[in-house]
Write a protein that binds this DNA or RNA. Structure first.
Lengths: 243, 243
DNA sequence: CGCCGCGTTGAGATATTTCAAAAACTGTGG
DNA sequence: CCACAGTTTTTGAAATATCTCAACGCGGCG
């Protein structure tokens, strides 16, 4: 079911995204315990699935590199995108009660994911208080940040908030990232935000003409950060946490 | 800060909503431990606040009876409603990382809330595995169900999904509830769903004319459940869980 | 080479908002 | 119990945002 497992595990101590992932805040002992749990890494090529909705959930995942899209199909076959994931994000947290994945997960770029066996992880949570606290914080943060993209009925604002969110979450430590190639299609953005893909396209060009962003071939550049925030109506910055 | 504390605590064993609250699944010992934790009940009159955003978070709450609205004001003073709460729901779960309430909470009806001291609760989670699992499930369920109201750009569908959601969550055990007085104003619904309140009103009347619901004075009655579900485009039922 | 997904653009159709105003209701104080 | 003020609901009409449909170009890929 989960293919392309790799026995080379990624070390939490040296991992580039540990500071926004589960390992954050842990002491040496707990870090070692967590490390011990993660025996395998899953490697997914762009366009391939990690799992499908309703499959048995045995692992939760930590995205180490790449980018993934979480979605499901309704009974009419329409795609509904529930989230995009970036390095440091935990995946599968919404599947605990039923132990069936609620959504399907597909790679938008070649991706590596740490496989965290759920039952063992649950055991460890009871032994490692800092890990437990960290995990609860991540859940809590996700609950809060799902409200970051305004429901409000205004396409420009939603799209601006989306861009800011994407850029924050794709940041690397050290260097400020203002230019990136969006990993998802404009159509995906439309589905995620509830907009027609033509509207997404038109607004992106509107932002471009307005010098808020710059559209290059296959890339996007935030040229006027402050104005984008103003459009999005954001006061607090989305801090860079698991989402 | 948290006013109107009452020393009469509510007993989880006899509580009418225990089956959808934290106490669910717990064995006698754990139930007793949880019970021990909850020393006080907060009583809030309609229109009064339980807490405001950015106040120090010392308690999470379980809504025992009544109905509450969670909201915040953006920098322009616009209200943004993040959630409505019904009996059995846990409140404050999104405030863990900062230990500051992310939102303000106001009663839409006279309400009673069990006060769960957060730090003690955190300790207990480490000792009571079933409670921990239950708590993680609630978090997980909330993450999943925040995606229940479709983002999709269609007011009728959103409102239909909203009504279904509200009715499911307001159900009492034993008797099927098809008629209720909505605890929030149409304006609140509009803010929550990102619609003008006039639109909410017009669509409610449209549903009424279409015999999907019946609008009585201050009440609403679901007369064609199946069609409402069809409009909402719901396949799975929102099961009745903490949300 | 041809196909297919993606981005782009235009024009008309439609849903929703906005503004304005009135009606209905709620709670308060006299 | 009534009058009043304030909120909520209701309705209409015009303005606008967004969608839908249609068409085309481009680039990657088998």
């Amino acid at each position: 079911m989960i293919k392309n497992k790799l026995n080379t595990k990624i070390n939490c101590v040296t991992c580039a995204v540990a500071h926004i992932c589960l390992a954050r805040d842990l002491n040496k002992t707990e870090q070692a315990q967590l490390n011990e749990l993660i025996k395998m890494v899953s490697i997914i090529k762009v366009g391939h699935h990690l799992y499908h909705q309703r499959q048995k959930m045995r692992y939760i995942f930590a995205l180490h590199s790449g980018c993934c899209k979480e979605y499901c199909l309704d009974h009419q076959g329409n795609e509904k995108i529930s989230n995009f994931y970036f390095p440091g994000d935990l995946i599968g947290l919404d599947s605990l009660p039923t132990e069936l994945y609620s959504f399907s997960l597909i790679a938008l770029k070649d991706s590596k994911l740490c496989m965290i066996p759920y039952e063992k992880f649950f055991q460890l949570l009871q032994e490692a208080p800092t890990l437990l606290r960290r995990f609860l914080h991540i859940n809590s943060f996700k609950l809060q940040s799902q409200r970051d993209i305004p429901v409000v009925t205004n396409a420009k604002r939603r799209l601006a908030a989306f861009l800011l969110n994407i850029f924050y979450r794709a940041q690397q430590p050290q260097k400020l990232l203002l230019h990136m190639q969006l990993p998802m299609s404009q159509s995906d953005i439309g589905i995620f935000l509830g907009l027609a893909h033509e509207t997404v396209n038109r607004i992106l060009h509107f932002f471009h003409k307005d010098d808020v962003i710059q559209l290059t071939n296959k890339g996007i550049c935030l040229t006027d950060f402050e104005r984008l925030k103003a459009i999005a109506g954001v006061d607090k910055l989305h801090n860079k946490q698991a989402g």
